[in-house]
Design a protein around this nucleic acid. Structure first.
Lengths: 116, 116
DNA sequence: CTATATCCTCTACAATGTAGAATAAATAAG
DNA sequence: CTTATTTATTCTACATTGTAGAGGATATAG
């Protein structure tokens, strides 16, 4: 069994996006979700290689879907976070929360972490 | 001017520790702060190389202090987060917050795994 | 001086982050 | 049907971060 390692920053973001998107998660939508929500640009390669690594770690599952009847509507690969992935994400977020909790200076920013 | 890059997960943790410790921050106390607060073990090398990289990026400043009159009380290197570091940390935490905000069901397992 | 404690530096390598070209597969146009 | 265009994923290559631990420096105690 692979030793449990801490998630990287981008891995956290990707896993969070998977939770947000639920069954609608595939390459393009995930990328879109992250970009619009964080304002940060994400290259295709960055996203897919991270997804692939998360899958190797058994944090994420994927399956090929069917093509759709739109122009360029080739088959998508759908991604879903697994229980192990959620658990690990929770652990990482918990750690960050422990470190960040109580640091004043950020009025709005920390409010977003109130879910911890 | 170095391009602004996103902070890594551990970098976030270290910067947060620096804020928490204020003027008491030096190698051992920083390590202690992170370990007790997160329950995660931190190797000496991991910490110092991260601090050193944060300093190169102008996010942190350090200076050598004086020795103290305790057994083994050799001089400590004191670290202090800089304004640039705080700004960058806030940016990273803001992004994470945006992605994590509103995710409720942490402990819950996704039941949709069957559809894979 | 030798022992022991505290603390930092250095080296080496593993894992994660990132970009963009290449490729694949679908419909639309002519 | 052949080419253009659109949507999507795969692949390759390299940069940055993460991590461990040996080793060296410097302090007091005895």
């Amino acid at each position: 069994m692979r030793k449990e390692k801490n998630l990287g920053e981008f891995e956290i973001i990707v896993l969070a996006a998977l939770i947000r998107l639920g069954t609608d998660a595939y390459g393009v939508s995930i990328r879109q979700e992250i970009e619009t929500r964080t304002g940060r640009s994400v290259s295709v390669g960055a996203l897919y290689s991270t997804l692939s690594r998360l899958e190797e770690k058994n944090y994420v599952a994927s399956r090929m879907g069917a093509a759709t009847a739109e122009r360029g509507g080739r088959a998508k690969r759908h991604y879903l976070i697994k229980a192990e992935g959620e658990a690990q994400l929770e652990k990482s977020v918990f750690m960050l929360g422990k470190m960040l909790k109580g640091i004043k200076a950020w009025p709005e920013t920390l409010k977003n972490l109130a879910c911890l």
